[in-house]
Nucleic acid binder design. Structure first.
Lengths: 400, 400
DNA sequence: CTATTAAGTCAATTCGCTTGACTTAATTAG
DNA sequence: CTAATTAAGTCAAGCGAATTGACTTAATAG
């Protein structure tokens, strides 16, 4: 033994893993179905009534579920439904974008309890992190005013920022190279005392859609996010997929045609960055969001021209995504004003034919997800909640 | 309760699940690392020595592992390595292609124990199935001559055929519409008495690469398969990904550019079908494989012209795959002769820039996988083996 | 030759799910 | 109105698989 190369093996499990999994399964079942009786839970999870009873008792003691009034329905003893207690857990979500940062606290069911935002200097992490830690402290204080146990129930801090991560150094400020180099997670962990996790903004969007949006309870969905860049958040087999290096879904960097290295990446043509350029706007400009919203509502011809061209590329992206992933649905989300996102979705129809064109579809091929600018921060916050409470393979295994 | 809509919930688990998982973890560890001592297994899986001892004893009784001679190495008591017993399990793999069918038996470690092939009439499942059942019976008989316990140790029958599945009816014979309609799995299950599973040919290729090829022990790999059509087999998080409807990876149907419904699917330009057309060959022709191999070795100019054009499209496919999946490596496999596949891989270099271009890569971005024409059948056979013996989330849960 | 190191076993324990009988409380049939 | 039926939920004993900690075995280092 004791070769130089480590032994490759998955971790084993034991009764703790079993129990942890079953707890998570209960929580997920209550999340997806609303209040359920113990008997219902037993049937749905294939556990015995007794096992369910014990677990529910545990969860109740931990303040994660609560009994509702008994319900009479048909023969037999009335049943007591249990539901999740929203304030049973909280998480903080942090969005770091080029010129601004947003922080939210969400509860166990994904509701926003507190929020704060501030401007950031472009690509200067040191002052940026000071600002961020200030906002985090603010929302924590605010939360403490709402729930006395808030600190004990904080499960983590999720960070979302534009990817991809870990590539060669860049000198494009808009790629935030200094942030990429900065030891962000360590600094935040030290500054907040919380567990910190990172995902890219599209993944955060997908996580948000999964916990409170169009992907709730859908196991195979792709969330196409159109922000300053373009990326896709991938929900595969009911879990977010990150790829080998955390950069899965960076579809904005896909070249649009096979014809050589000269062809354009998608995000040069269909992202909001391209729109700003097309309109000659400064992305850092105040009131940009409102201005874009107004232009979209007025169907401004220059905006419409961009929409047409972008929609053509995005239509093709959806085609690719469907062809490659075979998802149940594709969700378009954006940091643009809803009016603009609607125009895009409209202009994307009719969609290109693909294998998603099946006889027995249940969900629409393409739907508009949230355009709430806070969605990314919410998704960032949802990640630690999901990590702590959703059933997943890794939660069963021992250790990390 | 008893709403019409069923309750959505994952299944719970118990000690059986724990035990099943731990067994699988042991088997995988031995598969990936070769022979290991109990102590090594305990360290690698984070289980206690005692737990490992019990499980190994079990596996030994089941004939799945066997002790080797004790090894002295440094201080302490010599250790006894255990290794997998190849003949501990068998599975049958079936490839159904347009004009032919292949059947193989593989053992627990993926070695081929018996094989048989026959011609099939194009898209006529009824006589086809008779042929297939005959071949299956043949290889079973052959296997019985090798291993006395073979029948008891057969874990299933895996089927691979060209996808996609379940779309609208087609009248293109080459899409095998009659096979698509035919109740294949039920017929085969009834005719063989085995568990039957289905995957598309690219997925089978990926499964083969995973069990015995370039993807052995790699958790994120995409296997680009170039056959009569083109598709990708996706290994994500160490498991084959099938998508919402079993059609993930059908990249051959991807349109090559955003410019409208008129543009060509990848597989019209880069598949072997396109090569046959380019050369004016009949795909059903005898000796086609050898002829192609000879042409490739001779660097025939017409072949080279096709290679150039196909490589341009495939280069871009690799770029897309890397951008979208962020895999550790991309493996090119093909049913074409190895010489031709080599030409393709050569012509695909240099690859397009992508996020896979990272400072600290360990695996090549693109590598040539197997070009053994039997690989698909082997992959088909590997699927039941994997289902029965590899650690996976679903194996922990109760029921199906 | 002794101390040390490491593999592996033994026997008791623990923990969480299961089993099967039982209690409670409603509806429905007569 | 009563008895039968149905279903939720509890009780207590049982069981199975991993854990624990002491112990045995067998090698090397000094």
């Amino acid at each position: 033994m004791h070769d130089i190369r480590p032994i490759r093996a998955k971790s084993g499990t034991n009764q703790e893993g079993t129990s942890a999994h079953n707890r998570r399964v209960m929580i997920e079942a209550l999340r997806l179905n609303g209040a359920l009786s113990r008997a219902d839970l037993a049937r749905a999870t294939q556990l015995t009534k007794q096992a369910v009873s014990n677990i529910i008792e545990d969860l109740e003691q931990d303040g994660l579920v609560v009994a509702l009034d008994a319900v009479r329905k048909g023969r037999g003893q009335p049943f007591t439904p249990y539901r999740l207690v929203p304030e049973g857990a909280f998480a903080i979500g942090l969005q770091i974008d080029r010129h601004l940062t947003r922080v939210v606290v969400v509860d166990l069911v994904g509701k926003v309890m507190a929020r704060a935002e501030a401007n950031l200097p472009l690509d200067e992490p040191s002052p940026g992190v000071r600002t961020i830690l200030g906002l985090v402290a603010d929302v924590r204080r605010e939360l403490a005013g709402i729930s006395t146990q808030s600190e004990r129930r904080l499960v983590g801090l999720g960070v979302a920022m534009p990817g991809p991560f870990g590539l060669k150094e860049s000198d494009d400020k808009w790629m935030m190279p200094a942030w990429q180099q900065f030891p962000l997670l360590e600094t935040l962990a030290a500054g907040t005392g919380l567990n910190v996790g990172l995902q890219n903004d599209a993944a955060a969007c997908a996580t948000a859609e999964r916990i409170v949006g169009a992907a709730h309870g859908v196991d195979h969905a792709v969330c196409l996010y159109i922000g300053y860049g373009i990326a896709a958040g991938l929900i595969l087999n009911g879990e977010l997929y990150n790829g080998g290096n955390g950069n899965a879904g960076e579809i904005g960097r896909a070249l649009l045609s096979p014809t050589g290295p000269g062809s354009t990446p998608l995000e040069h043509r269909a992202s909001l960055a391209s729109l700003y350029q097309h309109l000659g706007l400064d992305p850092a400009e105040r009131g940009l969001y409102e201005k874009l919203g107004a232009l979209a509502l007025a169907q401004d011809p220059r905006v419409m021209a961009w929409v047409e061209r972008a929609a053509s590329d995005l239509r093709w992206s959806v085609h690719l995504i469907e062809t490659i992933f075979d998802p149940q649905t594709v969700i378009l989300t954006s940091s643009a004003p809803e009016a603009l996102a609607r125009l895009l979705v409209q202009a994307m129809h009719p969609l290109l034919p693909s294998i998603a064109d099946r006889p027995a579809r249940r969900l629409p091929r393409l739907q508009l997800g949230t355009t709430d600018p806070w969605a990314i921060a919410v998704g960032a916050a949802a990640e630690p909640i999901s990590r702590a409470f959703d059933p997943r393979f890794s939660a069963i295994l021992k250790a990390g």
